[in-house]
């Protein structure tokens, strides 16, 4: 589990990095530690896999990705591992998860596909399905972003 100090570091770095010459020094001051201590902690989070990365997230709609689909696939349970890995290997697939099924909802593998248009999404998904022999799938295009915020961990 995380120490109280580590939780404070999580709270600090889950926000925006200030755009100034020494941004980590500014964060460290708020935490009451040195810049070096903060940087060591962030390195340590990366090594432990707590942090996936420390970097930028873009609004994909604004860099030309106008086609964004959640694809739900029905994959035979004993093929889920090779199929999941094969779908994950496509560069335009950003997320790929196996998820629980519920009665009346047979889809067990989910991927996010981002292309420049919906037509390109459809074409890519058709090719993936053909290549992997998966015939049952649906594309759910996003038509509106109702909420998109960065998760605030350890709020209290």
């Amino acid at each position: 589990m995380l120490s109280e100090f580590e939780k404070r570091v999580v709270r600090e770095i889950q926000g925006d990095l200030p755009l100034e010459s020494r941004p980590f020094a500014a964060m460290a001051r708020r935490l009451g530690v040195t810049e070096g201590q903060l940087l060591d902690t962030v390195e340590n989070f990366l090594e432990r896999g707590l942090l996936r990365r420390f970097g930028a997230a873009l609004r994909h709609q604004r860099v030309g990705y106008g086609g964004n689909a959640l694809v739900a696939w029905v994959v035979p349970p004993d093929e889920i591992e090779p199929v999941g890995n094969a779908i994950a290997a496509y560069p335009d697939v950003t997320h790929c998860y196996q998820r629980a099924t519920v009665p009346g909802w047979p889809y067990n593998l989910y991927s996010m596909v981002h292309r420049h248009s919906e037509a390109e999404c459809r074409e890519l998904v058709r090719r993936i399905g053909e290549a992997l022999g998966i015939e049952q799938y649906i594309l759910l295009f996003s038509t509106a972003e109702l909420k998109r915020s960065s998760m605030q961990y350890f709020r209290d």
């Binding site: 770095i13 930028a56 609004r59």
Partner: peptide
Amino acid sequence: KIIRRIGGFFDS
């Protein structure tokens, strides 16, 4: 609004 955020992205 091309950059959404610069910071840490965690494995929840």
